[in-house]
Amino acid sequence: MHTDSLLASAVYLIVFPGFIFLTAYGLFLQWVDRKLCAVMQNRVGPPWYQPTADFIKLLAKETIIPDACDTAIFKVLPYFAIAAVISALMLIPLWKTESLFAPFQGNMVVVVYLLTIPTVTFFLAGWSSASPYSTVGSMRVLTQLFAYEVPLMLSLIGPAILAGSWNLSEISVFFAGRPALMAAQLIGFLVAILALQGKLERMPFDIPHAKNEIVGGQFTEYSGRLLAYFNLAVDMELVVGAALLSAVFLGGAWGLYGAAGLALFLAKTLAVTFLLALLKVLMARLRIEQMVNFCWKILAPMAMAQILLDIVIKSRL
């Protein structure tokens, strides 16, 4: 490989849009989310630097590792979560039509697969901390994973079928040119938003770490730097999830490049964040068995209906 492309890859991974940009934008989106919720609840909400301050504060705090836990796994899991999220971002088209790495057929499946890894690390984190709250929390993580993963995948299949491609950039190009078809994906988009809410473990699906029930859930025993990285991974997942939805359902970059493309990307992720915040504000937390019922009995059939609709449209094109 060329030195140039190696250097470029390193810059992509570490500075932009990789670790540093993703950290900054993730923290910013966390603030947007919190501020929107606060305003909708008629509160003041945090100042813009609050997530950053929280992050830095946690970095400075002592990290306590329980005696009973599996130390090696316990320590390494947050980094796995972050690495998986950054890799997923590299495969999604951001401010231009092509993704930065590997614009191959089927990269959509890889993104979904990579986004599952943080959830699995959450499960392992809870399981390895050997505390009753985290054990219950990690069991809930897994149960919830089986509930939302299917509707999420199904809702992404619909656009893929219509575009006739498993490549994210091809899907986005297909929809950017056909706004009417984009509008026809409304049900799928709704399902995807709800499933994404479940993936991000936010209200009404924040069951794994429902604080009124099981304190911190899977992260109960985490503290200091390790907890900071886990929180960061969740924030980054929000960015990546929003980017994925904007690539699949909202037509990606609409053929724009550079600064204009970046502005469009930011606008779309902000819009998705707004929808996610709205969902968070509007509902009460469900019970785990209600969540599974909801995903399998309502979301999955809705996604199927969308796929059927897409097949019908496809046959007419």
Binding site: V39, M40, Q41, N42, R43, G45, L278, V281, L282
Partner: peptide, 18 residues
């Protein structure tokens, strides 16, 4: 579903009660 939607959206344009 989403019974509080209109109430919540109007609060986007209100000053906080705090």
């Amino acid at each position: 579903p989403a019974r509080m939607l209109s109430e919540v959206l109007t609060h986007l344009f209100k000053k906080p009660a705090t």
